[in-house]
Each structure stands twice: as C-alpha cells, then as structure tokens.
Write a protein that binds this DNA or RNA. Structure first.
Lengths: 137, 137
DNA sequence: CGCCTGCTTTGAAGACTGTCAAGATAGAAG
DNA sequence: CTTCTATCTTGACAGTCTTCAAAGCAGGCG
C-alpha cells in the first residue's frame, strides 16, 4: 500500500519539459506553463487526505492519537474531551481510517488506533517540496 | 500576519501538564491523556487551511502557482487546463486566498497570484512534528 | 448460557460546498 | 468618452458533509 512514491508536485520546477507553449495563441500576461505541475489524477488521489484533515474534530483526534506516548489510543479515551456523541467520533475515525491517516487494531474489548506516520510525512513533503527556492522575493 | 508561532501540536508530548486525570473514574484501557495535545482553538484555526487543500482543483491551482518559476501566476493562465468555468476558478482562488495560502496582487489588467510559503511550511511542520519519535514500532 | 460494556452501522435532518449562468466592476485602448 | 478585455460577485441548484438517535455486532465476565 504505502507506495512511497516521490512527488515533485508543488515546488521544484521539474517541468515535464513538454513541447513548450506549442499552440497557445494567447496574447500574453505570463508565461504559459509547460504543463500542470501536479497531475489531475494525483490531485484527486491526495485531496481526500487533506479533506480529512479539514475538520477541527478530526484534527484533534489525529493529534491526540499521534501524540500519545504509547503511539496508540483506544476510542473510549478519545471520546472524553469532545462535545460530540460517540457515533460521531466513530464516524470521524472512519474518515481518518479511509483517508489512510490512521489504522485501527482490535485487541480484546478495545480497539486501538495509531497514526500512519508515512502518510503524514508524504503530505508534509508535498507542501514544502517547493520551499527549496527561497528566491521567491 | 505571519505569526510564525511554534506549534507543538501533533507529536512532541508537550503535555500542558494540567492537573492530570483528576476525576476520571474510568476503569481502564489506556492511560488517560493529560490533555488534548492540540487546543480546540488551534484546531479550529488550522482546519480551514487543510480544508482548502481538500479539493483536487484547489490542489492543482496551488501547485501551479507555487511551481511557477516566476513565483506568481495570473488567472488567465490558470483557467486554461481545467474543465470548470471561469467563475469557479475565481471562487476556488478566493477560498485559497481566505485560507491564507495564496495572495493576489493586481497589476494593470491582470491579477497575479503567489503562494504563501510560510503558511505551507507551517502546515507541513504540523504534520511531521511528531515524527521525531521513530520508536513508533 | 445470559448479560454487560465497547464500538460501529444505519437512517434522517440540517448545514455546507461546488458549480454554472448572468450581471457587475476595474483598468486599458482608441 | 466609449468600448473592450479580464476578473469578480451574486443567485440558484444539486450534491455532499456533519451530527445525533436508535439499533446492531463483537468480545469478556459471572
């Protein structure tokens, strides 16, 4: 699953060096980009992970799971400290799970969740991959 | 605006050392967390930025803006290459702008957008701040 | 076996988001 | 001043998301 593929998406000008400009009869304004720096398929694949992070409750859930010194946390502990009901927490955990950000493991009565560090690193790398060019005025 | 505040949110166990556990009469399962590792207010403040990234079109827009060697890009160039109409692009740019991820500057007829690297770095740092503990099995 | 606790699934109501058509605004050109 | 291009705003509709109540499944305990 964890493909660990390198994503030269946001920043590094790894312009795919296609036949530049070609038939762009546009008058002017700025240089026509050689191509989209991030493929549509990649964007569709990555957006759900960011969307999963786009909810305050999920952000806190993930934070709480990832910051647990034991590296994992059971649901009964997560439910305390939020103003929403149990099923809502369960729903948010499911969203995080389907986004590949956490994994759950049943151990007896309780289910323990742990963060997928690789996925988080992948997303983080996507955001700063373009930071290697501080010349941005 | 770029507050550049340090966010010990996801990983480092900078538990706010509140009066631990106190009245948690819970039987057991896992250690009661000392406190939420990320404050509710911070989660509410940061979630919109991630939510803004949670759309494939916005992800591509930001990618295209950030990967432009000139560091900026005008709208007329962004509209080519997407299957949505002009107003929709404008709407997504507005969302990115209100999330603090890009800034727009009018220069004559055209408006040039550029990415806010500091904001992207802040979000990225939030995701990997807990990675400093590779002991996660 | 029967009961109890922990967690998830289902179903429904309300709020929010993405999209486009139509109209409006800002600046340049003649 | 008039006109044209480039971009944004408004209004409306369809689809999705968040949330909770109620019911269901899984595993431990007496």
């Amino acid at each position: 699953m964890s493909k660990q593929k390198e994503l030269p998406l946001l920043g590094a000008g790894s312009a795919t060096s296609s036949s530049a400009s070609s038939a762009t009869s546009a008058s002017s304004c700025c240089e026509p980009l050689s191509a989209q720096s991030i493929a549509t398929a990649d964007a569709i694949a990555l957006a759900p992970a960011f969307k999963a992070l786009g909810d305050p409750i999920r952000l806190q859930l993930l934070s709480q799971i990832a910051s647990n010194p034991e590296g994992e946390c059971c649901v009964c502990d997560l439910e305390t400290g939020f103003d929403v009901s149990g099923p809502t927490i369960s729903h948010h955990l499911k969203v995080l799970r389907e986004a590949g950000l956490i994994t759950g493991e049943r151990r007896g009565t309780w289910i323990y969740y742990s963060a997928v560090r690789g996925k988080l690193s992948e997303l983080a790398g996507l955001l700063v991959s373009g930071d290697s060019e501080p010349a941005a005025r």
